[in-house]
Amino acid sequence: MDRALQASRSSFAERHIAEASARRRRQLVAVALFALVAACLPLFVTDVYTLNVVILTLMYLALSTGWNILGGYCGQISLGHAIYFGIGAYGTVLLYMMAGVVPWIGLLVSAALAAGLALALGYFCFRLAGHYYTIATIVIAEAALLLVLNWDWTGAALGLQLPFGPDSWATLQFGRTKVPYFYFVLALSLLAWLTAWIIEGARWGYWWRAVKDDAEAAGSLGVNIFYSKMGASAISAFFTAVGGAFYALFTSYIDPNSVFGFRISLLIALPAVLGGIGTLWGPAIGAVLLIPLGEVTRSYIGGSGSGADLVTYGALVVMVSLLRPEGLVSLLHLRKRTRGARP
């Protein structure tokens, strides 16, 4: 093998690798520009309601990017990520209220817990393939919701109110202005994006995408299918829990339905599905379109009870799956892709 390969060694490899690294560098530059523009937003957005929407959008952007690591790259569609979101939220708040653990530590501990739980659940669930896995994730998250609804030490159905304290970066509590939350969640989104970016260029990223496309073929190339899914699941759960912790600190009140509910699982998955599953920019594009639209329809057409936002999401998903099954991100590069070639 070696002899023949060395004989064919040419400039092709060098050229190709130079192009590939240039492409990856351009992605970094693009995200740096976006971040810079985003960081200036609070200078112009002074309206509390609008800033609120911006913060939620960034939160779902981070969450969906985390979801995409498992659902998009590794192809394991989870519709039960609310369980990790809830653990992040409840874990951080409970640790703070019961043991006085500062939220910074609390959110890391709960995120590690969520990752651990993802591994434990994955140990059983990754024996299921395709839709069966998805169904299992829904069932498990619903079971968690019922548990928390009935546990007294978690406040049961009443939920938990974070005790008010002075504004401080140490406790991550800000009552007067929401701007610090904005920077926190912007940093979180960047971190999630950067993680996805690193994964795309690393061994795991290639292996996960191979597992998604054809697990048996991946296995025949030495890829450990089970460990791939476990790794993706743990990282994904970690980010979801950090998002949950942020949500709890941001709203300072949580109850089982608002953090463990199916609605959260959907809102975590939808931006990635809409924007382009398994792509670097898909979750971001999806979140930027979906979340403000949902918030606007909710506040102008009716309260959360009427479900106008859910109807909007549903309509969008139907439209995208019919017109652009690869997600909105495919509009960015309309070049050579021949659509008929795919099954």
């Binding site: 190709h16 061994r203 191979a210 496309d213 073929a217 991946a218 099954p343």
Partner: peptide
């Protein structure tokens, strides 16, 4: 059984990794 969502070169990288 190719990995259809990946580019040709990425398919091979899966093996060479």
């Amino acid at each position: 059984r190719s990995f259809d969502s990946m580019s040709v070169i990425d398919n091979i990288v899966v093996g060479s990794l």
